[in-house]
Structure formats: structure tokens, C-alpha cells
Design a protein around this nucleic acid. Structure first.
Lengths: 339, 339
DNA sequence: AACGCTTCTGAAAGCGCTTTCAGAATACAC
DNA sequence: GTGTATTCTGAAAGCGCTTTCAGAAGCGTT
């Protein structure tokens, strides 16, 4: 249609409207009063040329990008969507774009933070496991605003962190098995070794047992790694051994799937013979057979809160050191309730 | 630690290394030979200052951002992760970042494509339903490279499109119900009205019936909208009416969940009494009870291919008009196989 | 009629990098 | 030794916008 050689720049608009580029800039940004008549002239010029300001130029001039980077490990599973949706909602409302980078499982080398060229964004949201402590320190040292998600900062660094309450809820759900369902031999499937959620969930489990004078039996603690197949294998092994148990706290919902599959394959009835409870309340929790009793982690809110904190940090230079979002037990049938 | 006033710029590096900024730039970009000795001098200067090139400045200078925008409607459900993973993998391998914008359900107004300021990215990946045809035309008119995902371009526009094969697979899966399981009264749950996948899946259904001389009974066609609850309500209504049926092609897996729930609530046995088949092979398909027979849509590949096409379009100015990824039937138990 | 305000507007100096162009330096051939 | 290629390197001109600074206008006072 048009000459189409180069997209129009602010100069073209200024020329067409018969004003200076400063004035065009002011009309675009509405930060300084411009007389009504000129505003309409400039606006119609912009429309006529189909002018769109070049972001790169504004970024350079303002030294702000209005973009926040999100570093994710690519194995978030069902977390992905709610987390991102939460982040995006808040970011957009505050005029920020979001730049995403999946780091995969973090390999300690090549943590050079290449993806974002650091000054490519105004700040970074770092999900647990997507950056090594060294990487975090490096980013922090360069003055980039940072907020960690589901992971606390390396000792000594004051980087804000947003996560969910794990321990109390884990304790409560295990106590529910003990008190309401009279379970005594409760298996714990541990999450990944370096995962903080996993750590606190295990603490909750231990507290619950201790509070009811149940002995901590190492044979009842297996690996789950928050993974379906790992959990399945562990439970199969336990079933094959002579270790008896009457309940499983799977560590997370994904692992719960593996547990249910293993149990189903052996013809073990859930919850009659064995109660199963998970953590996260992922979408799949309610369609499991039987529907899974679990702990609801408000992942979308985590995303929102993380974005909110980061933006606050960017704007004011400080944010809340720790945001701990409440979790909530969701009783379905796998524990024995509502049968 | 540092004086921390301003981050170091290329000038600082040049000064410290005793060379011109042109040379520093060349060392950074390795696109022009620089003597080995100077390279080391510059590199150690960069290291010492902890220098990171400011992206905004390079973007402005090169008129490229090396960023591709991804427009997503926020109701992608389980598509979200594999799609994004696919896009990211390819983008990263080619040196592109990805900027994400969730548009939610598209509201025809405010399609001003605000989020990306157009020239903020080198090109856009547009998922079905995230932009109105008018929005697409506008973006296209401004010369932005575009690739559509799961949606063909507005008539007349030559915008490349990446999607999956819907019709043949739908026909095949329905024929499977007819031929292998002797089903005759097969319900179709339609997807959203303006959804192309839904359209082609319905065509496949019609073809299958026609090929086997089965009459197309309007009473067997209901709304599913690719939504669990909508599908559930439709099936409940059908069960309550006197319309009998012996199978359901749910349109997609999400709707299949609703169908299974409705059937289960009424005590109807799947697949003995009614066969159920879905489409997509989302993660939940295999944990449904019974596991869902469905069509596998290679969503991660769609993401990869879309990114690949867009990058090709950005680099060479042209891309394949249509990329149709093959789908594949996955037989599980809900149709009646492997019982 | 002169003065001081208040409001707008334009000129120009960056923001930090890439890239063209030309010159310096070195190498090589004769 | 001179001439000509061949490499490297630096100066300088942008890239397109924001923002400071100062000047121009308009307007009410005295």
C-alpha cells in the first residue's frame, strides 16, 4: 500500500503535523500539557502515517525497558499456566511486558545469564531451580532487581522471595490421616533433594508424626521427586517388599498419579486399604480415581504476588523480603473422606 | 560493592582497554577480525567492569530486536506448556527471545495491538483466538512478520499458518467407533463456533458417518465448547432425554472429562455401554477412568514449527503458507479397546 | 505601557551501540 | 627501496526517542 520503505519515525509525524519532535513526543506520552489544537493535529498525523513509536528508542532514551524477565525451568508441568497467567495479569496492569526464558534443568556451567543480557529487562522473576545460587548472586551483584519464586535467596543476599506455606499444611494433612482416618504407617515420598517445597513438606510430615507419638520409620520414606514414574516405581517396590503401610503422603500431585497407578495395578483399594494425599491441587487432582485429597497451592496468586513485588522493587527500590501465601486443605475421596 | 552509580557502558570498556569503542563493539560481536592481543585486552576490561551490552542500544542501532512476540489467549489450558516449550526451544536456538502477551478472550475493541508496540518485536506468533481478523490485518499491513497458529489467515492475506491435521484423524477415530466397536449412534460435541479445529473435526465426523451410510442425526450433535462443564451439561441433558446413543466424540479431551463425569454420575459404564473418544491427547487423557482413546496433537512440535516459520519469515521474507502437522490415533480403553 | 507570571513549544544534547569510511600499519612482491 | 595488497583500527554519523533549557506568547497587574 504505502511506499513501505521504512516505517514512519517521530520526525515524519512532526513534519506532517508541522511541529517539533519534542511536541510529538509529548503528545505520545501525555506527560506535559500540549494545546488541544496541536494535539489533534499530531494525532491525526500519527493516524495517517500509522505511526508506532519504536520501543528500542524509548528504552534507550529512558533507560527503562518496562519489561520483566521470567526465568523458568521447563519442568513446571501444570504450574506453568497459572503462574504465568498471574504474572502477566499484574505485569500488564502496570504497563510491563514479560520476557520468558526457559532454562531447562539448570546446569551449573553456562550460567552466564546470557538470555537476558541483563539490561534487557528492568528486573527478573526467578523460579526455583532455574538458576544456580551463583547465577543469582551474579545477577544480584549487577544491581538487577530480582524476586525469587518458591526458593529462598542464597544466604546473605537480600532478595525478596514469594512462596507458599508448605510445612503447616503438610503437617495438617498428615494429621488428618492420623486423626480422622486412624492411619499409622504413613509413607512419605520425598521431593527432589534441593527443592525447598519438598524440604518443608517433609518437615511437616515429621512434625505430624512427632505430635502423635508415631515413630519415624525410615522404611516409609521413599523418593518421589515430584514425578509420576519415580513415585510409581517407589510404591511398587514398597508393595513388593514386606513393609506395610496404610497411607501415602505423595509430596505433590504429580507423584500422587504414579502412586494411584501403582496401587491400582496391584488391586489395592484407595482409600479403603490405603489413603493417598498429595500437594498442589493441580487440575488433575479432581479427576483422579478416587479424586485426590490434597493441599491447594495458590499458584496464580504466587505469580501475581511475585510480579507485584518485583514491580515494587523496581519502582521503589525495596520489596517485602518474604511473601508466604496461605495454602488450604482440599478434602476429596482419596483420604477416606466422603466415601 | 562498586561505585554502582551507572552500569558500565562501551565507552568505559574502551577507555580501560585503551581502544576505540568500535573495536570493543567488534570484540563483542566477533564479526570483524581483531588482533588477538587487543581481544584479550578488551575482554579482560569487560570482565573487570562486569560489562554487559545494553540491548536497547543495539536494538536501536541494528533495527532488530531478536525478539519474537507470542500472542496467546489465556484459555489454552494444557496447551500452554508444550506450545511455549516448543516455541522457546527453537527461538533460543536461533538467538531469539520471546515476549509473551496473554490477550484473554479477544474483545473486538481495543485491538490496537498495544502490548507490543509493534516494533517491539521482529515478528509475532498469533495463537487462534488471541487476535481478531481486523487485528491481524492491521498487524500485517504494518509489515510485521506474522505466523498464525491453529487458525488460517483472513481471506486475501498471505500469512503463514501452522496447525494440525484435524479432519482425517477425526474421521478415522469416528470410523474406529463404527467399524471396530459397532457403534451407530455417535454423539458429536461441537467445539466453539469460531474455532477452526472444531470445524474440521466436525467435518471429519460427518465424513465418517457418510462413508458408512449412517444418518446424521441433529439430536446427536451438541455443544461441548472444548469445556469440561459445558460438555458435562450437554451429556446430562441427553441422558435425561429419550435420545439414545452408544458413543461420544467429545471434540477435545477437556470436554471428554465432562462427558466421563456425567456418565459416571449416572452409573453408565464406559466403554461397555458408551464409548468415549477425545482429541488432543492432553496429559490428563491417560489418567482418566478409563484411559481416554484420543488423537494425539503434537503441540510442542506446533510451537517449534511456528517459531521456525516465523524466524524464516523474518530472515528471508518468506515462509511456508501452510504447515499441517500429522496427528495420530491413540487407542486406550474408553473406546472399548483393550478392555 | 511596562512588568511579571504562567503556559506552551522548539533546539539540542544525550541514551549506548553499530557500521561505514578512510587512514595507519604491516606484509609481500618486484 | 618502491608500490600495492592486506589487515586492523578509529572517527564519526547515525538509530529514534526523551528531556532539559530557554525562549515565545498570552494575560492579568499596577
Amino acid at each position: 500500500m504505502k511506499k513501505d520503505s521504512k516505517p514512519p519515525s517521530i520526525d515524519d509525524v512532526a513534519r506532517l503535523a508541522g511541529v517539533s519532535i519534542s511536541t510529538v513526543s509529548r503528545v505520545v506520552n501525555r506527560n506535559v500539557p500540549v494545546s488541544a489544537e496541536i494535539v489533534t493535529r499530531v494525532e491525526s498525523a500519527m493516524r495517517e502515517l500509522n505511526y508506532v513509536p519504536r520501543q528500542a528508542a524509548r528504552n534507550l532514551a529512558t533507560r527503562r525497558t518496562h519489561t520483566i524477565g521470567v526465568l523458568l525451568s521447563d519442568m513446571l508441568g501444570d504450574f506453568f499456566q497459572p503462574l504465568l497467567t498471574g504474572i502477566e495479569t499484574v505485569a500488564r496492569a502496570s504497563g510491563f511486558e514479560i520476557l520468558i526464558s526457559l532454562t531447562g534443568v539448570v546446569r551449573p556451567q553456562d550460567q552466564r545469564l546470557r538470555p537476558f543480557g541483563l539490561h534487557n529487562t528492568d528486573g527478573l522473576l526467578i523460579f526455583a531451580g532455574s538458576l544456580t545460587p551463583a547465577g543469582i548472586e551474579q545477577a544480584h551483584a549487577s544491581g538487577l532487581p530480582l524476586v525469587l519464586i518458591h526458593q529462598s535467596p542464597p544466604t546473605g543476599l537480600d532478595v525478596p522471595c514469594v512462596t507458599v506455606e508448605n510445612k503447616a499444611a503438610s503437617r495438617k494433612i498428615v494429621e488428618h490421616l492420623i486423626v480422622t482416618h486412624q492411619r499409622r504407617r504413613i509413607v512419605l515420598l520425598r521431593g527432589p533433594a534441593d527443592n525447598e517445597d519438598a524440604h518443608w513438606r517433609e518437615m511437616g510430615y515429621r512434625e505430624a508424626l512427632a505430635a502423635h507419638n508415631l515413630e519415624l520409620d525410615p522404611r516409609l520414606m521413599g523418593v518421589g521427586d515430584f514425578e509420576r514414574e519415580v513415585a510409581r516405581a517407589t510404591i511398587e517396590k514398597m508393595l513388593a517388599s514386606d513393609t506395610s503401610f496404610d497411607a501415602v503422603f505423595t509430596g505433590d500431585d504429580e507423584a500422587a498419579v504414579g502412586v494411584m497407578l501403582a496401587l491400582e495395578a496391584r488391586g489395592v483399594k484407595v482409600p479403603e486399604e490405603i489413603s493417598v494425599v498429595g500437594f498442589d491441587d493441580q487440575r488433575l487432582a479432581e479427576i483422579l480415581h478416587p479424586p485426590l485429597t490434597t493441599v491447594r497451592a495458590p499458584t496464580e496468586q504466587v505469580g501475581q504476588e511475585a510480579a507485584r513485588q518485583l514491580i515494587k522493587l523496581i519502582r521503589t527500590g525495596s520489596a517485602d523480603p518474604l511473601t508466604l501465601l496461605p495454602t488450604e486443605l482440599v478434602f476429596r475421596r482419596s483420604c477416606g473422606c466422603r466415601v
